[in-house]
């Protein structure tokens, strides 16, 4: 298992309720939990992944997402069982949609 931590500057986002969870920690899948964070214009991400050595790819995938979507003011926690970058991006979009009020 590998623990990764990132912080990205991002446009602020307003949560609809408190937190949002998306996905399941199953083979080739992951769960993403988005909660309100401490800094309005930044997003912190903690990843626990079963696959070692993919830190650069994680950073690139999440940075790309953070540049395209307002995710400032959030803490994102990810538990991963070997999801592909495409699945990660898909789940991030679903989780953010739930977090902001179900708009997907």
């Amino acid at each position: 298992m590998e623990n990764l931590e990132f912080r990205f500057a991002a446009q602020p986002v307003k949560p609809a309720a408190g937190a949002a969870l998306c996905g399941v920690v199953g083979s080739g899948n992951l769960e993403i939990l988005i909660r309100p964070g401490d800094e309005a214009d930044a997003c912190t991400v903690v990843v626990k992944t079963s696959a070692r050595g993919f830190g650069k790819i994680w950073e690139a995938v999440i940075a790309e997402f953070a540049s395209r979507h307002p995710v400032g003011g959030t803490r994102i926690a990810i538990n991963d069982m070997g999801a592909t970058p495409a699945v990660v991006t898909l789940r991030l979009g679903q989780a953010l949609g739930d977090y902001t009020g179900g708009a997907q």
């Binding site: 079963s50 538990n79 991963d80």
Partner: peptide
């Protein structure tokens, strides 16, 4: 976590 396996919340 001790066994190096990601858990679920």
């Amino acid at each position: 976590a001790i066994l190096d396996i990601p858990g679920a919340f």
